[in-house]
Simulated assay, not measured.
Amino acid sequence: MANKFVFCFIILIVLFNCKENSKPIHTDSNSLISTKSKLDPKQFEKNIDGKKTKLFYLKNKNGLEATITNFGLRIVSLHVPDSNGNFKDIVLGFSSINDYLKPQAKYFGSIIGRYGNRIAKGSVLINQEEFRLTTNSGEHHLHGGHKGFNNVIWNVGKVSSNDIEFYRTSKDLEEGYPGNLKVSVNFKLTDNNELTVNYFATTDKTTIINLTHHPFFNLSGEGNTSINKHLLMINADYYTPINKSSIPTGEIAKVKETPFNFVSLKPIGKDINTKNQQLLYGKGYDHNFVLNDKSKDKYGINLVAKVVEPNSGRVMEVYTNEPGIQFYTGNFLNGETIGKSGKPYVSRSAFCLETQHFPDSPNHPNFPSTLLEPGETYKSTCIYKFKVEKN
């Protein structure tokens, strides 16, 4: 009888340890020693609107590591190797929740919703009814409004060492959008060195939705030199020109023989200072590209962009099922914002590649629809895949 008791006790200890080890490290002070980020998890614990923020760690068997906070689902750090196996953090970010609460940090590494990018004059027509959205960029609506998805605390669902799910309900007329929108977002760091982001949503009223994510990347390392020498390919023969307010004109224009031609790898900075009206409007690249879809797999996923940093050999590929991607070259970074490594974030020290539907789609019938009906499920995928190329 005593032996049976001892056996059962040992089994319980083993099961308890297995359960604990399945969780990402976000409360254990020893995580400062065992992780690459060296971030202090306690600096990411804060009560906001009655909910607690935390920092979560994802790791894969190859040593890649991502840290994510449930405040706006921000990717705080992302460590990937170079061609010599040296790891560096390649996303811009900050060392505490308090830093992310500052106005200049509001979109760094965050989810964007309900609608990524701009909607002209904050006006949308749905089933012949006009809805007025919050205007937070002059007279226009940007990135979901004053309290978009980047500015709220998300609930935490299932977690494991390389996988985490977040969810929330955006209530009817939040920031002006119709419908109670139930959203879940899953982050997974696979052993194929992919950081996958999967979005799901349902609604009880016809609404619009366009979710994306806003990491600022520098493949030579966060806070390092200009990204102008990074090589970029965007799988797009067309882009959507903008007006002086960064609102699409409705035109779908060819990239051929323009500075927007990235159909094969070229340095980001090669044409960025060309005297071109579109580049003047954006103060650099800040435009949506219309993605080619001939190479989609059976799941609708397509290779849409590739970035190579020649010195380190780091390579990032972007895959998605979305029809567009916003390419932004950190034009408004001005050196006044200091990042987690103590370095200033200067102009063009980072780039963004945001998979998305087109900006202002509800006001352009020739753009792909962003309507979501009751009974439908919105599904969107973005994959950042990391490789190395020998110098």
Rank of each mutant, 00 (worst) to 15 (best):
S264E: 14
K46I: 06
S77W: 03
T381F: 13
K38D: 00
K54D: 11
L64S: 03
N60V: 00
D271R: 11
N334M: 03
N86E: 15
N127W: 05
T203K: 02
L231R: 07
I252A: 02
H141N: 03
R314W: 01
P241D: 02
V255N: 09
Q128A: 06
T355I: 10
I111G: 03
G375R: 04
Y319L: 05
K256I: 13
S22D: 10
V255M: 08
S347E: 15
I164Y: 00
F9I: 15
H26M: 04
P359S: 11
K61N: 04
V185D: 13
K121R: 10
A305H: 06
S245D: 13
T207R: 06
V307S: 02
D237K: 15
K52S: 06
Y378L: 05
Y299K: 14
N198A: 11
Y281P: 06
G113L: 02
N292Y: 02
V6W: 05
L232C: 07
P374Q: 11
P323G: 03
K4E: 14
I75A: 13
M233K: 15
V6T: 10
N243K: 04
P215V: 07
G282M: 06
Y238W: 10
S22A: 09
I153N: 04
L101P: 07
M316G: 04
A236R: 07
G282L: 06
G122V: 01
T196G: 13
K88V: 14
F166A: 04
L181K: 09
G221E: 09
K54P: 06
N210D: 11
T207S: 09
I11F: 07
Q326D: 12
D271M: 13
N276T: 05
E322P: 10
T225E: 12
N288R: 03
T27H: 11
G300D: 01
G72K: 03
T67D: 01
L372E: 04
I338M: 04
L73A: 03
K296H: 05
T27A: 10
L73G: 09
G335L: 00
G339H: 13
K390I: 15
K102M: 02
V183A: 09
N235R: 07
I11C: 13
E336F: 09
T206R: 14
F332N: 15
Q128K: 08
E165P: 08
K266L: 12
S349D: 10
T320W: 05
I208V: 09
P267M: 12
N136T: 03
T381I: 15
N180V: 06
G113V: 00
Y384H: 09
T320L: 07
S83Q: 15
D89T: 08
P374H: 09
F7Y: 12
S349V: 08
G179V: 09
E376D: 15
A66T: 07
H79F: 11
S161T: 00
